[in-house]
């Protein structure tokens, strides 16, 4: 039976990975818009809107899939998270609502230019806000400050996520999303000056990601979580760390030498995928850790009964057969030319 659960966990990990790689880049475009710089402001905005518009709804669906897998496959994980992390979850929901609406309104409400400023800023700020709280939520189950038996509202519902580790992870997530967006936009820009602009941003953001990654380890140590030892004591984590470091070299070369607009996207996504993979391995088999010496909740303990797991797996397999071909078709229509142009 363990195999069914393992495959479902694989689907969960893949959905999260795709959410970050695709949905995350959509958030990143909004974050990048916060600082457009002095030149080519309209062109940048147009490119980003053009890149995001046809695909953002589909990219958002990976999050729905994550939620569905959690509440059908691991109902206890879902209810524990939504009880003790309700504040940051409400924060991302607010952000998702504002962002989705602002993006749509901005695109369609073209009668007069007046409300455009409002939509634009609502879109940008909610992109930043949502990305940040997504990172915060991801940190709490790992850190182990969730305390169901705390004595005050602050201890039970706030302390688990309002701490340096989770806040740094929030910033790290913002940086990752922005980096992905910048890297993809390097490939999407047909204009040389525009591509150069996003290249410079990608370089800056890549450095930021590496620095924040180091700060994250430090924050974990400061919180008495031996993340460094856990991470480097695990062969898989060491492997993906080595791979990510190795990939940084050609990635850096692509960014500096203005070569390989296809390769730069593949390498950027590959590095982020390595980071996520490391995190999954670090987290597994625990779903969430509690404070005060309570035993952690593992995925195996939280798993739904066999019959449910089997039917969930069936739904996921059939769903994938429907979703993947149509998703690839969608991407081929709207992103295909950006790959053909350069190769």
């Amino acid at each position: 039976m363990i195999n069914v659960m393992a495959i479902i966990l694989l689907f969960l990990a893949l959905s999260l990975l795709f959410y970050v790689l695709f949905g995350g880049a959509d958030f990143g475009a909004g974050i990048l818009e916060l600082r457009l710089g002095k030149t080519l402001r309209d062109e940048q905005q147009e490119l980003m809107a053009h890149a995001v518009a046809p695909v953002w709804e589909a990219n958002h669906m990976w999050l729905i899939l994550v939620v569905v897998i959690l509440f059908m496959g691991f109902p206890r994980v879902y209810t524990e998270l939504s009880t003790y992390l309700f504040l940051p979850i409400m924060a991302i929901l607010l952000g998702i609502v504002v962002r989705g609406c602002a993006f749509t309104f901005r695109h369609y409400d073209t009668l007069t230019p007046r409300p455009q400023g409002l939509y634009r800023w609502a879109y940008r700020l909610s992109s930043l806000w949502t990305a940040f709280f997504l990172g915060v939520i991801a940190g709490a189950p790992f850190l182990g400050r969730i305390s169901p038996q705390g004595s005050s509202f602050y201890e039970v519902y706030v302390a688990s996520w309002l701490n340096p580790f989770c806040l740094v992870l929030g910033c790290f997530t913002v940086a990752i999303f922005a980096l992905l967006a910048a890297v993809y936009l390097v490939g999407e820009a047909s204009d040389g000056a525009l591509a150069a602009l996003f290249r410079r941003r990608a370089v800056f953001l890549a450095v930021t990601v590496v620095v924040l990654g180091a700060v994250l380890f430090a924050a974990a140590e400061a919180a008495d979580v031996a993340m460094t030892r856990l991470f480097f004591g695990n062969p898989v984590c060491c492997g993906v760390f080595a791979l990510a470091t190795l990939l940084l070299v050609p990635f850096w070369w692509c960014l500096r030498s203005k070569q390989g607009t296809v390769a730069v996207r593949a390498l950027g996504a590959g590095i982020i995928a390595c980071v996520l993979l490391g995190w999954f391995v670090l987290q597994y088999p625990v779903a969430l850790r509690y404070a005060g010496g309570l035993p952690p909740l593992t995925f195996a303990e939280a798993a739904a009964p066999d019959a449910t797991q089997r039917s969930l797996l069936g739904a996921l397999v059939v769903g994938s057969c429907l979703i993947f071909p149509s998703l690839i078709y969608l991407l081929k229509i709207f992103k295909g030319e950006t790959f053909r142009r350069t190769s």
Binding site: P54, A315, F334
Partner: peptide, 26 residues
């Protein structure tokens, strides 16, 4: 969750297809 998660998982698939098809249409 374990009992009626199933329609939600199918709903997720349908919702996903809807979003993809809408992108293609628009």
């Amino acid at each position: 969750g374990a009992i009626i998660g199933m329609p939600f998982s199918w709903e997720g698939t349908a919702f996903f297809l809807e979003a993809i098809a809408l992108g293609i249409f628009l």
